[in-house]
Amino acid sequence: MELNGLQLILIFIFSCIAGMGSVLDEFQTHRPLIACTITGLIMGDMTTGIIIGGTLEMIALGWMNIGAAMAPDAALASTVSTILVIGGHQDIAAGIAIAMPLAAAGQVLTIICRTITVFFQHKADDFAQKGSTRGIDICHLGALGLQALRISIPSTIVAASIGTGAVQAMLDAIPQVITGGLQVAGGFIVVVGYAMVINMMGAKYLMPFFFIGFCVAAFTNFNLVALGIIGLAMAIIYVQLNPKYAQVAAAPAAASSGADDDLDDELD
């Protein structure tokens, strides 16, 4: 399918927003749920976009920037894979498989951008020396613009060439054992994200709750809302019963909430 001029402009604008979202990590416009949905909307098939978004979001669930460590890039993976699936008439599983190398490429590109930004940081030092707040604003927003182009240039190139048939011929040339294998791997690739979250929490002594969650899910059909309520209830009970907090609350200096007081009364 060939995209018209307006669609290409919209793809460019939205992938700029996704690129900025990826470095800012604030409004989450780079997350598959948002980025695939809006890219799908521009491509004229929002429902497919939403489904790709949901599937890819699942895989990317634990991808996060912690400290100075960069995660695989969800923005490039989301926009380009959605363009390829809808524009190149691929099935969603193939799109997910293509998304992974794209996430790696996006990660490399963001590291390059974040290195170039060191130059903007030094330029800002000069502007501080002159007392120019306007100059500092320009440095900051210029660096943000760089991150926007990081996603929008590759996305727009792919969107513009999708109609030529070259991209589709390339996608169709992938042998069946690769697409099938990628589909199989798609079933368990999620565990990398889960492992990232568990490692980040750094709370080995709380791992029993992980195993309770695993077993509850293995033998029941509870949905996420029910699981969330059970998890929250266990968290509250744990904090209420933990002697570590009860002792601190008993100290005269510490302000304690009503719930703590009730608990103290019962303990007395």
Partner: peptide, 10 residues
């Protein structure tokens, strides 16, 4: 606790 419980389920 909530996070680990839900991740375990997922």
């Amino acid at each position: 606790i909530l996070g680990l419980f839900v991740i375990g389920a997922l």
